[in-house]
């Protein structure tokens, strides 16, 4: 599904990713952990095609090379990035935004557009699952939302847009325990054989709720260690420095 080879990325001449390799097979959930400044958010941004990075290497999603595509083309190819800090867009109605995005993706996938009426039904159903206040639909995108509301809005988009590859960048930051459980339940619910998920997180607590198939430690711009879920438990106890050779 996702194949990353020798990925380098630098900002203003400073290299942040230094030859990263990563494979995420279809249907799996992988956790990507690492200390602050390890390049986790950079990886998320580079995958989604944000401006401002010099990038070399290869990122293939289902055999389609993503590097070089515009952000919306990557979205059409099936990539969804859940933002650590979702943008506030004053004046743009949340429902309008969601429906426009959904229909753009449906067009790209050769599907019929969803009417406004059908969309409202669809959105309301998903919002109920996320315990979201329906009034959030008629407000501007993330404008004045609480931290928890923003993150739920990200998960709402995730469930509506039905991507192939989900990258969640610190989706757990700023959430209380109940909200975290809701988000985790959604991720579990959205697990499917043709969908892969990468959870980028700084804290292990998310991984107590969503059980990853693989855990990777990102450090110094590349994958330093990989293992099964027990690696997350180990990191929870010993921190990121445990098991590192002493220089």
């Amino acid at each position: 599904m996702l194949t990353i080879r020798d990925l380098h990325a630098s900002v203003d001449g400073r290299e942040v990713l230094s030859g990263l390799d990563l494979d995420v097979p279809a249907g799996e959930v992988h956790a990507l952990m690492g200390p602050n400044g390890a390049g986790k958010s950079t990886l998320a941004n580079v995958l989604a095609g944000r401006d401002g990075y010099d990038v070399t290497g290869s990122v293939a999603l289902d055999g389609v090379e993503l590097l070089g595509l515009a952000p919306e083309e990557r979205a059409a190819a099936g990539l969804f990035l859940g933002f650590q800090h979702p943008m506030e867009i004053p004046g743009v109605g949340n429902m309008y935004f969601l429906r426009t995005a959904l229909n753009a993706l449906r067009r790209a996938r050769g599907l019929d557009e969803v009417s406004a009426v059908d969309f409202i039904g669809l959105a309301r159903g998903q919002m109920a699952l996320l315990d979201m206040d329906p009034s959030l639909l008629s407000r501007s995108v993330n404008d004045g939302f609480s931290g928890g509301e923003k993150k739920r809005n990200e998960v709402l988009q995730l469930s509506l847009l039905e991507p192939r590859l989900v990258v969640l960048d610190e989706i757990d930051s700023g959430l209380d325990v109940d909200a975290l459980r809701l988000v985790a339940d959604s991720v579990e619910r959205l697990r499917s054989p043709d969908r892969s998920t990468v959870i980028i997180t700084h804290y292990p607590r998310m991984l107590e709720l969503v059980v990853p198939d693989r855990v990777h430690v990102l450090r110094g711009g590349r994958i330093e260690r990989s293992g099964d879920r027990s690696l997350a438990d180990e990191l929870a106890v010993a921190g990121f420095d445990a098991g590192r050779p002493v220089p």
Binding site: A48, P71, E72, A75, F83, P86, M87, F97, T100, A104
Partner: peptide, 18 residues
């Protein structure tokens, strides 16, 4: 804002108009 909209699949022009 532009990047956020485009990540969700909108073209640059549609995102800007929005």
């Amino acid at each position: 804002q532009l990047f956020y909209c485009r990540q969700r699949g909108l073209t640059e022009e549609d995102a800007t108009t929005m």
